[in-house]
């Protein structure tokens, strides 16, 4: 990382960062607005690799209950 921090480079970096973060946020937003296909509404991966029950993919996580005991 022996980069010279030029003003020009920093401006490019900030623009790139803003554009990518913007694309990501909008992609995330639109993906969550897209409904799940019929018959798949309650399907989830049921990952129990970790014990974080606030994770959407944990089998213990309840969709209706926002709270969890890891607070």
């Amino acid at each position: 990382m022996d980069t010279v921090f030029s003003i020009y480079g920093i401006v490019c970096a900030v623009i790139l960062f803003a554009v990518m973060a913007g694309i990501y946020c909008s992609a995330y937003y639109f993906n969550h607005k897209t409904p799940k296909p019929k018959g798949c509404e309650n399907l989830k991966a049921n990952c129990d690799g970790c014990k974080v029950t606030s994770c959407m993919n944990n089998p213990i996580h309840d969709y209706n209950k926002g709270d969890n005991k890891n607070d």
Partner: peptide, 10 residues
């Protein structure tokens, strides 16, 4: 609230 996960990751 809708885009909190992206904000966290950034």
């Amino acid at each position: 609230d809708e885009i909190r996960i992206p904000v966290y990751i950034v």
